[in-house]
Simulated scan of single mutants.
Amino acid sequence: MRQDWEPEDLIKVWTLLEDDMKRMRNIAAARGAAIRQQLLELPAPVVADALGYHDKTTSRLRNETGGTWSRCAAGDHGRSPVGWAPETTGES
């Protein structure tokens, strides 16, 4: 069943009250603080990939935060280095 809405009704339903606005600001601040904390602990491209952010955004946030990660090790990290073999315990 479709209900016809008046514009005033829509405005009333979708307008945030002051308490709601405070909660939204707190959530945004907490999210920003969490991302900046991750950027102090991890390289910006890793945080960007994990959280779905653009790498330029996390790089900018890292610079603002004062993070020291400037480079990540290059290469294909999905395979083992040449000459590396897993340790064996001698048990089969």
Rank of each mutant, 00 (worst) to 15 (best):
K12R: 13
Q38A: 14
I27Y: 04
A50W: 06
K12V: 03
A33Y: 01
Q38H: 06
R25D: 10
L51H: 01
A28H: 07
E87G: 03
K22G: 00
G78H: 05
A34Q: 11
T58V: 12
D19Q: 08
T68K: 15
V82Y: 08
L17W: 01
T58F: 12
C72Q: 09
C72T: 13
P45Y: 05
W84S: 10
E6N: 05
R23K: 11
R25L: 14
A48T: 02
T15I: 01
L39I: 13
K22C: 03
A73F: 14
D49E: 09
L61M: 15
E41Q: 10
S59G: 13
L51T: 00
V46L: 15
V13A: 04
L42R: 09
A33V: 01
L17D: 04
A34L: 06
L39W: 10
S59Q: 15
H77Q: 14
T88P: 08
R25K: 14
A33C: 03
A29W: 12
G32L: 15
C72M: 11
W69L: 02
T68L: 14
A44P: 08
I11E: 10
L17M: 06
G52R: 07
R71E: 15
V13Q: 05
A44Q: 00
L17E: 07
P7H: 01
C72P: 00
G66F: 09
L51Y: 01
T58D: 06
R79Y: 05
R62G: 05
G32M: 10
A85D: 12
R60A: 14
L16G: 02
R25S: 05
H77R: 08
S80A: 15
N26D: 05
L51R: 02
A30P: 01
K22D: 10
E8C: 00
V13T: 04
A28E: 07
S70Y: 06
T58M: 13
G78D: 12
R25E: 12
E87P: 11
Q37A: 11
D76R: 12
W84T: 08
I35M: 13
V47A: 04
E6S: 15
T58R: 13
D19E: 14
D20W: 07
W14K: 05
R62Y: 00
N63C: 10
D4R: 07
D76N: 13
S70G: 04
M24A: 12
N63Q: 10
V46Y: 07
D49I: 01
E87R: 14
G67W: 02
K56R: 13
D9G: 07
P43D: 04
G66P: 14
G52K: 02
